[in-house]
Amino acid sequence: MVLAAPVEGTDDPAATRRRRKSRESGAEVGKAGPLVYIMLALGAALSVFPLYFMFVVATRTNDTIGSLPPVLTPGGQLGDNVQRLLDNEDAHFLRGLLNSVLVSASVTIAVVLFSTLAGFAFAKLRFRGRNALLLVIVATMAIPVQLGLIPLYILMVELGWVGELKAVIVPFLVSGFGVFMMRQYAASAVSDELIEAAKVDGCSTLRIYWNVVLPAVRPAAAVLGLFTFMQTWNDFLWPYSVLNQDQPTVQLSLATLSSGYYSDFSQIFAGTALATLPLLMVFLLFGRQIIGGIMEGALKA
């Protein structure tokens, strides 16, 4: 709801034209009737509502939670709530934000790079043990997270990384999910003919990766990047285990705010809203890239 205007506003005319053009050659089925709009609007409303509710609480006093009928319009307390949030010395909120940006960006870049590379190898290159290795990667995703907590922590102790940001970065530079996703996508989206043609031209696999595969998988890579960024941004259990309160990620700051002893809901929600805001911004950025990427990819392939 809040986002509607900026999203539409950011569409630059050139991109729109490109999209229009691609629409003609694209695979969209039929024109949307009123029913489609109603259903989509409903879906959009349901998606946005809880976020909107968060915003409402963030702009009101602490009494909002638990009043009946529920309060559904924003109030004027946002500044006050944010002020209390920033004054809260225990939370280290700004430092948490900064740390989260750093951590999430590092992890995202690495995951996208390694996943597209490996995904390409699994989808389009033939090598001994390919299927078995892919299976191993899928299997790695099945490892319950809570399980690794203690051994991974012991490892961090041995490396001397406890309390340092690299402890929440390095173990996550690769992702089985990412590799699997890029493999699935590359398998269907990268044309074998193009790869063969490039090979005939004497291109090395690295060049093929760079010139053929990367452009073709960009939409999925953007989705993966977005996904990774958000997951890293929102991760709690591991940062909580390995970092300290004075060097937190933003979720740790939030936890400090929201944990049991004094629940100041409007402060918590103000924090949550502020912590979600950068994500929403990244989200808009990447959102355009996903959509734009799909269309541009279609033109370039």
Partner: peptide, 15 residues
Amino acid sequence: GLAAVLVAATACGGE
């Protein structure tokens, strides 16, 4: 290499 750079970039943060 990139990973290493990333690690280096963040090493300043913690301890």
